[in-house]
Write a protein that binds this DNA or RNA. Sequence first.
DNA 1: GGAAATTAATCAAACGATTGATTAATTTTG
DNA 2: CAAAATTAATCAATCGTTTGATTAATTTCC
Lengths: 208, 208
Amino acid sequence: MKTEKVDKKQAILDAAEKLFCETGYEGTSTRQIAKESGANMAMINYYFGSKEGVFIEIMNERIAGFASQLKIINEDKISALEKLHKVIEGYVNRILNNTAFHKMMHRELSLTQRPEMYDKIKDAMSHNMQLIDRIITDGIEDGSFNKVDVRMVIATIMGTITNIVIAPHKVISCSNFDLSNPKDKKIIKDRAVAHLQDLTTVYLTTKR
Amino acid sequence: MKTEKVDKKQAILDAAEKLFCETGYEGTSTRQIAKESGANMAMINYYFGSKEGVFIEIMNERIAGFASQLKIINEDKISALEKLHKVIEGYVNRILNNTAFHKMMHRELSLTQRPEMYDKIKDAMSHNMQLIDRIITDGIEDGSFNKVDVRMVIATIMGTITNIVIAPHKVISCSNFDLSNPKDKKIIKDRAVAHLQDLTTVYLTTKR
DNA sequence: GGAAATTAATCAAACGATTGATTAATTTTG
DNA sequence: CAAAATTAATCAATCGTTTGATTAATTTCC
């Protein structure tokens, strides 16, 4: 049957993403990728040219998927605060549903050695940031938000989520807590959304 | 002169830290470390046993230096809010004065492959976290703070700072902005402290 | 429609280069 | 002189990549 014909190209991408997330780019060998994917080593270069080619392909796929998600929100005819809360919910869900990739992305962002990748990630993030910036700035201009340091508020929203993903033990001191457990993940998601929505509501709309 | 006698052991540590920060642990070779430090390759194993031995030594040194800083604050006879503001200022300064190391630490925290190192970093952070937790919890109990999700507030404080360090372009969209430039760093530091102090003040003390 | 030519996919084996580590000899130092 | 420090040379292992050959599928041609 045709359904049984597994796509080796995709198998390599899947295996590589898993391994890159777990042990980093340099920490993953092409032999590991070949073994994990069930493909021959030569297939990696055959399809992607090089190990870095695989990495870039993974990033491009993911980033493209990300970009297509948040656009609609800003067109809704709702208040700035409601928009922001929608964005927060979307962001928390997206990132906590892809914790491994998010970790990998941040790891890459903190390296100076692959500028092409750094710029790619930076640009992808910048786009989403501008969207949040627009929402908050609009809210300030129409008087519904206090005058705040917009970029810092964005850093707070994004930083909080990233911090939860990278260091979950910070949030839940309970030792047998596991983000890969759907039940635990749900708990963290809800807490993160509730906290960030509450925080932004109070900080942006409290008259003072 | 004795002043010219440079300590090869320390030179290796310095070079290794610099390279680990720039290109990661796996991305740095022992030959690079030797070249950068001016020492022979064998000296690395002579002094530290292995490449990982160098890494562990660097981490231990740094973590020990960190732990000795924040203790005094909690003994002061000042309000919970003032304590928290002192902690924020201390944290921002410490981390922005050691951006390279902080990046490396977070990179290591997001990998699953060196559990010994992961636990070491986790424990070091946990200690500082408990201190902040104590301050906020005390503030809640004596009625000066609102009832909030304490661990989430901590995630927000730490996450915001980390986010600024790892992705400075998020805060300043200006392209010719450089964290290694003392003047630019001062600007970011002040903005970060002002933002976080303002944020915590409003969120924790606004009656609602 | 069926032989011939072309293409894509896959494989085991080997490539040169680099890795972290170790040896044994030599120099420096107290 | 003996211990510590330093060196050049070398080790086996692994790295990412390339090779030439083989199979399976597709296209071309008469």
